[in-house]
């Protein structure tokens, strides 16, 4: 099992993304309470927890939306606690949002082109370059491949606003994948989707991510993660109370008590 160690040596060695003693309070509420977490370089892991457990807060701390009150975040052996979200993106940390987050006033393909353009320029994304680059000329196999895989080819030239929720989620995932991240953080990617759409997303994750990048998925329901992830952690009231493979976590008495509230 990867990434469960808490010692510092492991952070430099194996884990690609790590948190140590991460704490964040909003007023009296403690949204994250001294969280230690490590994600292996090619690991696919999940965090489950009830609503309000602090799952999204953990993502916001990892991606730099919030600065933690205490604790630190590590990426690939270096501390990134003070880096801005944008600097973390440059390192290769990508995320999706709980509410499908796309550019509704642009066409599907232009959403992907924007995502691809930045990756293609690799940090040399000057304003002058952006002004002189014709959007229609931003082309790449990976864009077409993504469209095809998510069955969005027909909708490529439609405005995103006209798409159903499922397609928006698929598009958001595709935008994250086009950036070729080293760590991909997915915030409830299955919420509000049909079984078929969930199947498509699971297939895409398996095909594109397994053994290629580290993936961390936040989910409300444990069922969707069953066949997908190597490891599951349970987050309740801002604390990780259990950690291990699917069956271990499911059978763990702590989980049963505080998550499912059964004795």
């Amino acid at each position: 099992m990867m990434g469960t160690g808490v010692d510092g040596a492991m952070i430099g060695g194996e884990a690609i993304l790590g948190a140590r003693g991460l704490t964040k309070r909003f007023g009296a509420m403690c949204a994250a309470n001294s969280i230690d977490y490590h994600l292996g370089p090619k690991e696919m892991a999940g965090i489950i927890g009830p609503n309000g457990a602090g799952k999204t807060t953990v993502f916001n701390l990892l991606t730099g939306v919030y600065a933690p009150d205490q604790g630190s975040v590590f990426f690939d052996g270096r501390e990134i606690t003070r880096l801005s979200p944008q600097q973390r993106v440059k390192l290769g940390i990508r995320r999706t949002f709980q509410l499908a987050s796309t550019f509704d006033n642009l066409r599907v393909i232009d959403n992907l082109r924007l995502a691809y353009y930045h990756k293609q320029r690799q940090g040399r994304c000057s304003l002058g370059g952006m002004c002189s680059a014709d959007l229609g000329e931003v082309r790449d196999e990976s864009i077409d491949e993504c469209l095809e895989q998510l069955e969005l080819s027909k909708a490529a030239h439609l405005p995103v606003a006209s798409l159903p929720l499922g397609s928006k989620r698929k598009l958001e995932l595709a935008m994250a994948l086009i950036g070729a991240p080293r760590v991909l953080l997915l915030d409830e990617p299955f919420a509000g989707l049909s079984e078929m759409e969930i199947g498509q997303i699971v297939a895409m994750l398996r095909h594109r991510c397994t053994r290629r990048m580290a993936v961390l998925i936040i989910e409300h329901k444990i069922t969707w993660l069953k066949d997908l992830v190597d490891r599951i952690s349970v987050l309740v009231n801002g604390e990780i109370i259990a950690d291990g493979d699917y069956q271990t976590v499911l059978d763990s008495p702590v989980t049963r008590k505080s998550y499912w509230r059964v004795e």
Binding site: Q86, T102, M130, A133, D134
Partner: peptide
Amino acid sequence: DRSVFGAACLAVKANERKLQFLGYNTYRI
């Protein structure tokens, strides 16, 4: 309007945070 910059402007209007998470410096845009 036809350039990448034009699309980035519209993207700022629709969802500035998302554009930041694609790595763009929205302040400069």
